[in-house]
Amino acid sequence: METEKKTVIVTKEDSPTDVIEAPTTPNSNGKNSETSASQRLTKLAKHFVIDGTLQPLEKQMPIEDRTSKRNRLEHLRKQKNIEAIVEKSLAYCANSDVKHKADNDWFSRYITLAEEVSNPTMQDLWAKILAGELTKPGSFSYKALKVFRDMSIYDAKLLAKASALAIKDQSKRNIRLISGCYQKPGLLNFFSSHRLQHVNLSHYGLNHADLLALAENHLLYTQESESNAMAQNEAIIFTYNGLPLKISAKKANVVLQFYKLTPLGAELAHLISDKPNEEFFDYLKKQLSHHFNVSSD
């Protein structure tokens, strides 16, 4: 069915009449629905009290009153946001005694950033930041808070995806996404089909474009890294979302390949709850088993 067109006449005071050809699309009831962009803009303008000039002239409040009203509602909105986050934080606060006093300067900066957050999902993450900082001061730097402030929900979900697939070393400061492993080429293995093993992260929801998006937010290094060549029987101990992962080299000169989270990414990744993906964990162990003995006991 061809899209019908409806002529919409827009008249402005002291200006010539404009004629806009606006397509309309029949809805489920067979009626034409108008383009909703202008309605959405009007609703947003009203919500943020910037719709003064959209009202008929005789209904417009003086601009001083409009400004005062907008400032008042903006302060109320910020107050509501930060109070909601503080309330959510109580559920994440540990019951153990806190030995170090909270940094008032950090808390003041935190409030300035967090009071802009109205999305409930993002408020939960900001609540975890506050609880984590109160329990262990120094857990989240001000720089990390500013990066997190500029992240969208989509960016936060990407970080959650990465955290669900990542491994941590024993210090929990270094977080990596294993992308493969290989044995350095030699006369005996040069033509082996198993010499290089790839870990397909995209099959588990994290493709190359997602990695680039994480890098743009300074959460991940785009350059793939490698471990030092390991000696036979040399072992490394990691954790995968709270589960132990011990790998020891079956042979000499085997190397792990991985993407590494930046220090900022590692800080923020601790916000994500440990939710191991059992299917991915089994797949990871299988891919590594060509060159490593893998234990998760």
Results as ranks from 00 to 15, higher is better:
Q197H: 03
S33W: 12
N228W: 02
S152W: 01
P263K: 01
T135A: 06
K161N: 14
K161S: 08
A164D: 14
H218K: 15
I272Y: 10
M61S: 12
E267G: 05
P137M: 02
E115A: 04
P276A: 02
K260T: 03
N228A: 08
N81E: 01
Q232Y: 06
H270G: 00
S295Q: 07
V10I: 11
I129H: 04
K128M: 08
W126I: 00
A91W: 10
V98I: 15
A127D: 05
Y283T: 00
V19Y: 05
N200V: 06
L214R: 06
S152T: 15
P26T: 11
Y182R: 15
T3K: 09
V49M: 09
K59C: 15
K59V: 05
A231S: 06
I178G: 13
S225K: 13
Q223A: 13
K286S: 04
S193H: 07
F140R: 00
M151V: 00
Q232A: 13
Q39D: 14
Q60I: 02
S15V: 01
Q60G: 02
S179N: 03
L44N: 05
N200A: 12
Q183K: 14
S289G: 05
N71D: 13
I167W: 06
S141R: 07
A249G: 04
A269M: 07
D18Y: 08
K78G: 01
D103G: 09
N189T: 04
A229T: 06
Q223N: 14
A102L: 14
N189P: 03
H208C: 12
I237S: 08
I63D: 06
E13Y: 09
M61H: 11
H270K: 10
T239W: 03
N29M: 11
K88A: 02
S89F: 00
L264S: 02
A131W: 04
S202Q: 15
G242N: 07
R176M: 10
S89Q: 01
E116A: 09
A215S: 14
C93K: 10
L243Y: 11
D103S: 15
L212E: 06
I20K: 11
E133V: 03
H291G: 00
A94K: 06
K46S: 11
K285Q: 15
M230R: 14
L212Q: 07
I236M: 10
G30K: 09
S28L: 07
Q232S: 09
N277R: 08
